[in-house]
Amino acid sequence: MQDRRLKYVLILPAALLVLGTTIWPLAVSLVTSFRDWRLTRSLTPGPFIGPEHYVTALTDDPDFANALQVTASFVAIDVALTVVCALGLALLLRRAGVLHSLTRAVLILPFAVSPALVGISFRFMFNAEMGVFTWLAGAVVPWLQGYVWLADPVAALLVLVFSDAWRWVPYMTLVVLGGLSALPKEPEEAARIDCASEWQVFRDVTLPALMPVLAVVAILKTVFALKMFDQVVTLTGGGPGQSTVTLAYLVYSIAFRWYDMGYASAVAWILTAMLVFLAVWYMKLILRKPGGA
């Protein structure tokens, strides 16, 4: 019918947008990643040099190795923390209560705050002299008094995780709550009548039923953690030293501090490859579900 052509016409504008704003730059980056191109030397692309940038990155670049390791640590801690906290909080918030509904109501707030602003606020609150979190930590644990959080490589990474988790845990709690509310009540009630303890109910009934949602949470969080950039700029600036330089931040540094477009593109593409791999996994997970997506 006339819909035969119309459906493609309907998709065209969005397809063109995606083609122009994502596919095209991806292709250009890929091509650039095989070229020698430093803006400091030339405004036009240099010669093709084959996979040299990739070889350099993967075998002979301590900065890349460092960023990879920082990103991996960040992702691991961030994702684990987010999933566990979101699940725990959601399980608590499932019940009724004044405190519960109050908490549910504010869950939406952190996600609306610009990540750049989150980073800068946390920088303020972890300020060495009189940041309020520095003070609070000192008040609770005496030997942390006057601790310079952002000067310690490990602590700085943890603060970075904290700032990201602050924004994401409440949001993911909402996601898990959504998943919980979609679960049928009968299996849990049946288990309770069958004399299961609350822990057994959770382990044997609720958790298995919730696994698809938790998988969504984990993969999404991994994706966003891998792309971590905004707070690195505004909270730690990659420091102290290079201890919080993530892959995305490394690409930014290579491209806009050293103006090495070829190498930056190669590192960006390594990051992209990881994300595309995750994307495929994620999409399979959610598109498989009938009615999902």
């Binding site: 995606v18 991806l26 980056s29 792309k227 690409v251 960006a268 994307a279 999409m283």
Partner: peptide, 18 residues
């Protein structure tokens, strides 16, 4: 799938050519 997968692309790879 392609349209959706693009949201996983890191912004930093898109911004270089632009």
């Amino acid at each position: 799938f392609t349209i959706l997968a693009t949201q996983f692309i890191p912004a930093v790879v898109v911004v270089l050519p632009f």
